[in-house]
């Protein structure tokens, strides 16, 4: 089992109880999609999994190791092994696309080298490879904020690919946990789906089994499904 969550709770300082006892497991190579209304706890869940947030209670096991409350060097190691693509890109706007992509590899570079921006040819090669993968190699020298929204998200994906390259994925297959809103995309890509509502899991299983009734439970009575193809 790659990832195992048990009875995970997250209470923010403001008192918001965002996750209320979430438990599930993720196998290697799965494409798990998390769905739910805004405010249902999707982002909190994802941030807890890669430990940008510390859960209030419960446990997270990642590759057999309990990472629920790890700190310092260990926490950085966890971050290094899980790549994250953000909803709003979070690029460093004033730097070039290439530099932004390379920042995905910072954890494996020495502090001095990274501050002096002394990168080895292999790092550049990997960065260009990542940009080629997302199809915007020709934008490498441009400033990140000169790109369109979609292109910026590609840069963010390329940045996460830099983490992916030398990682476990080659042996185990890429595992993805993703938050989506369009059910047609969920049906097309997900191998498994989890629906959150008010911080708890209300549906877990095959995306093809989500029928009209489940849809109403997840998104509320008034919601209607929109198809995109």
């Amino acid at each position: 089992m790659l990832l195992k969550l048990q009875n995970l709770h997250k209470v923010y300082k403001s008192g918001t109880h965002a996750l209320k006892g979430v438990s599930f497991e993720v196998r290697e190579g799965e494409f798990l999609v998390v769905i739910g209304l805004s405010g249902s706890g999707k982002s909190t869940l994802l941030r807890c999994i890669n430990r940008l947030l510390e859960p209030t209670s419960g446990t997270i096991e990642f590759m057999g190791q309990d990472i629920t409350h790890v700190k310092g060097e260990e926490l950085r190691h966890v971050h290094q092994q899980i790549a994250m693509v953000f909803q709003n890109f979070n690029l460093v706007k004033r730097r070039s696309v290439l530099t932004n992509v390379i920042t995905g590899r910072l954890a494996s570079l020495s502090t001095v080298d990274s501050v002096l921006e002394r990168f080895s040819p292999e790092v550049y090669e990997e960065a260009f490879q990542a940009l080629r993968t997302v199809g915007i190699e020709e934008k490498a020298k441009e400033r990140a904020d000169a790109l369109s929204g979609g292109q910026q998200q590609r840069v963010a994906i390329a940045r996460s690919l830099m983490q992916y390259f030398e990682k476990i994925n080659n042996e185990l297959g890429t595992t993805i946990i993703c938050s989506l809103h369009f059910l047609s995309l969920v049906r097309r890509y997900a191998t498994r789906v989890i629906a959150l509502r008010q911080g708890g899991i209300i549906y877990q299983g095959d995306p093809k089994d989500i029928n009209k009734e489940w849809f109403k439970t997840i998104y509320g009575e008034e919601a209607e499904e929109v198809e995109i193809r």
Binding site: L52, R76, L91, L106, Q163
Partner: peptide, 10 residues
């Protein structure tokens, strides 16, 4: 961007 850098393990 700070969050993104932290998330890479920097």
């Amino acid at each position: 961007p700070v969050e993104a850098m932290v998330a890479t393990g920097a």
